[in-house]
Amino acid sequence: MESTDFWNLAGRAGRLKREFQGNIFLIDYDKWTKKPLDGPKDSIITPAIETSLNDHHDQLMTVIAGTPSAGRSDETDLETTFVRLYTDFKAGDLSQTFERAGVAAGDAQSGLLAAALAAASEKLTLPAAVIRRTPNISAHKQQRLYDRISAKVAQGPDVAWTLIPLHPRESEAFQSYADVLELCHEIILGIDTSKNLHRFHALIARRWMLGLPLPQIIDEQISRNTSKPVRTTIRNTLDLIEGDIRFQAVRLFGCKRCPEAL
């Protein structure tokens, strides 16, 4: 753990609105590989949009064009920058955004970006206000999701109703969530849906939404994965709920809901 991460975590000690301070216990600190107490408490934070513009310009250009960047599996920051630039472009505020990010208006870099955004605008029919509501998902992916949903709606009300997630207590809720996640995994995350990861996530998501205690969910996973060490299963389940369910699945469902509302 780096010093800045440690002090950020330590600063949360205590109970909000009840205590003004808390205690930090370092267990076997002498055995720690790194010594965060010896490092600085503060660090300089560079905005993600500035990093994307200045350090990942070529990769950002491919995202704006709708092509995944080679060699980069996680493009969230780049997609967020694309959405910000695109919506500011549509609103006529692009030059101010460039200025705040340290990119000189009128230079070659800003000119290329503006041209790429104009080309993207020719492909996108979703209103910029809708795209901005899910800022960490590429506008191109949102457009493809909208096109797929529109095609399903055109098939009639019976198909259209399947796009609306059911309440977790309804008997068909699992299949409903699996269908939604399958669509999002394919279009937004680019995951091979033949591996049925969306069904597994739908299963855990429904249990979490029903309010099942975390120990119960973990016990179920231990029973399903008897060949794996218990510690590994516990760690993987916690990561799954915190990362894939509470963050990613919520993000995907939210993105699907925005174009659907049109």
Rank of each mutant, 00 (worst) to 15 (best):
Leu9Lys: 10
Leu16Asn: 12
Glu19Asp: 15
Gly22His: 04
Leu26Cys: 09
Leu26Gly: 01
Tyr29Glu: 10
Asp30His: 13
Asp38Trp: 06
Thr46Phe: 12
Ser52Ile: 04
Asp55Lys: 15
Leu60Trp: 04
Val63Leu: 04
Ile64Ser: 01
Ser69Asp: 06
Ala70Val: 07
Thr76Tyr: 12
Thr80Leu: 12
Thr87Gly: 03
Asp88Thr: 02
Phe89Glu: 04
Phe89Ile: 00
Asp93Gly: 10
Arg100Val: 15
Arg100Leu: 14
Ala101Ile: 00
Ala104Gly: 06
Gly106Lys: 04
Leu113Gln: 01
Ala114Ile: 03
Ser121Ala: 15
Glu122Thr: 07
Glu122Lys: 11
Thr125Cys: 11
Leu126Tyr: 07
Pro127His: 03
Ala128Val: 04
Ser138Asn: 03
Lys141Ile: 05
Leu145Phe: 06
Ala151Ser: 14
Ala160Ile: 02
Glu170Ala: 11
Glu172Asn: 13
Ala178Met: 03
Asp179Cys: 08
Glu182Pro: 01
Cys184Val: 07
Ile187Pro: 03
Ile188Arg: 02
Gly190His: 05
Lys195Arg: 15
Lys195Cys: 10
Arg199Glu: 15
Phe200Tyr: 15
His201Asn: 12
Ala202Met: 06
Ala205Cys: 09
Glu220Phe: 09
Ser223Gln: 14
Ser227Ile: 12
Lys228Val: 08
Val230Thr: 11
Arg231Tyr: 10
Arg235Val: 12
Arg235Gln: 13
Asn236Val: 05
Ile241Met: 01
Asp244Trp: 01
Gly254Cys: 09
Gly254Trp: 06
Arg257Tyr: 11
